[in-house]
Amino acid sequence: MADQIEAIFAGFGGQGVLFAGKVMAYAGLIAGREVSWLPSYGPEMRGGTANCSVTLADEPIGSPLVLHPNVLVAMNQPSFDKFLPEVRADGLIIYDDTLIAPASAPSKARIFGISATKMAEEADLGGLSNMVLMGALWEKARFCAEGDLIGAVDECVSASRQALVEKNKRAMMLGMEAARLI
């Protein structure tokens, strides 16, 4: 994986793409790196597609807007189709194959389909497919130490909702295990 990570998390509003991006950014912060997180905002937030740019770097970050990612996490077909051609040749794509048909466009990037929605539902973790994908992404990209990623979940979920913290972590573990097998 390249030293500087420029990631796009994309999907429908409500799938938790902004949250997943925030967890990655927080993990980078805990790891002592320069980080930025930039959401798409406006009407898109309200029911349409949503995405965010996350950058992890060792130098101060210039533009936080990622146009040509080396990491793409796609949670729906329109986002997958839209961003796939932009992913760099040395990049990494993680997508939810419960909801997305395999790539039609060729890409030189490494590409992994994870049945995130299905896995989350079967594990009674409905709505946490974003964190399943997050776990898979970490397994394939290792952009920080595992402890930093766990710490990031603690930071991103309010302490008052402890049950949710544990669920998020379990979803992430599911994703890590699944990614290890492919």
């Binding site: 320069e34 997180w37 930039l38 936080p64």
Partner: peptide, 10 residues
């Protein structure tokens, strides 16, 4: 501006 307002950084 909207970018600085919306983005997160440490």
């Amino acid at each position: 501006d909207g970018m600085l307002g919306q983005m997160m950084e440490p």
